[in-house]
Computed example of a mutant assay.
Amino acid sequence: MTSHAPLPIFDGHNDVLLRIRCSGRADAVEGFLNGEEGGHIDLPRARAGGLAGGLCAIYIPSPGMNKDANGDFLAPDQPSALNETLAMARLLFDIERQANGALKVCRNVADIREAMGRGAFAAVLHIEGAEAVGADLDALYVLHQAGLRTLGPVWSRPNVFAYGVPFRFPSTPDIGPGLTAAGEDLIRACNELKIMIDLSHMNEQGFWDIAKLSKAPLVASHSNAHALCGHSRNLTDRQLDAIRDTGGLAGINYGVLFLRQDGIKNPDTPLDLLADHVAYIADRIGIDHVGLGSDFDGTTVPDDLKDAAGLPKLVAALKARGFDEEAMTKIAHGNWLRVLGQTWEG
């Protein structure tokens, strides 16, 4: 019997660079290239599951995961964040150099298509939380020249640009103020440079501030439907409608915290709940505006999925829900390539 290759998936968010960086292992790059025990993604598991590429995030954890008097995580200072950002960017470039063509850092959609076409992992350099970029924005322009193509102004903490939505359940995302003056400058600069702006981790006021200001499609790379899971990180129906109206995209987060109606971090969570969020958003705003944003290596995913090698199980769950081949191609990678093309080249 001939086995079929898995459906190629281009994913909106992973934290594999942070996992490798935090491991402190001298052979961490070799482990990613040749396979390892921990985490969700390495190249062998990506190939086995059809994970053809995605946005590889640079995220700098809060120092000591400390919080302020309001219970918000503290942002790292700009020099420290920039140093760590450069270290993780170098890590991605080291992986590319040592991969002998098996991973490519992509700067446009043609790069992504070329890499996917020959079975290489199509990696896009992404920053989650722009603490490395000072209010003068000098670092933004340099990082763009180095390959930065997508950016989330905040993680779930305040910084000089905006107020990231805290992790709360049950809660709406309507927590805190929106963009600062520096944040408005950042959005304008991202539009100028054609850097995709990621709305995941934005609070609601920040979301609407960006919606008014940005000329690009609205994209939330790894956020789910608030109607199904009342977590502050999820998107309200009104936010989903705005994403549709700009030709944007919502990438479904695999994290159980953002899937379950009870908000419990329980890995014994059926993939049917993940399919529920895909179906809800597709029904609400159309199949052209939903993709996948796993949050692999950054969150707790369902045990039934386990890691990147388990992605065919998710594809099977979506097909069982009634998504045909055309719809599955859009969800798996077509919608991401379209919205990135509109943002980078439109």
Rank of each mutant, 00 (worst) to 15 (best):
M1T: 15
T2V: 14
H4D: 12
A5P: 13
L7G: 04
V16M: 14
V16W: 10
S23L: 03
R25H: 11
A28N: 11
E36I: 07
D42H: 10
A48E: 11
L55V: 02
C56K: 06
S62P: 13
P76M: 04
D77A: 09
Q78I: 08
N83P: 04
M88Q: 15
A89N: 08
R97M: 12
R97I: 09
N100K: 15
A102E: 12
V105S: 05
A115S: 10
G117K: 10
R118Y: 14
A123Y: 00
I127A: 08
I127R: 03
A130R: 05
E131P: 05
D136T: 02
L137E: 06
D138Y: 11
A139K: 02
R149E: 02
V154Y: 05
A162Y: 06
A162R: 09
G164M: 05
T172K: 13
T172L: 12
I175T: 12
G178M: 13
G183L: 10
D185S: 14
D185W: 06
I187F: 06
C190P: 01
N191T: 09
N191A: 09
I197K: 07
S200E: 06
Q205L: 10
F207H: 08
I210V: 15
L213Y: 13
A216K: 03
A220P: 06
H222W: 05
A227Y: 07
S232W: 02
R233W: 03
N234G: 13
N234Y: 06
D237A: 07
R244D: 10
D245A: 13
T246F: 07
Y254M: 12
V256W: 01
P270V: 09
L271I: 00
D272P: 03
I281L: 06
D283F: 09
I287F: 05
D288T: 05
V290K: 11
V290P: 03
V290M: 07
S294E: 04
S294Q: 04
T299Q: 07
T299E: 09
D304A: 15
D307K: 00
D307H: 01
G310M: 00
K313F: 07
L318C: 09
R321W: 10
F323Y: 12
G334I: 13
G341M: 03
E345W: 01
G346N: 05
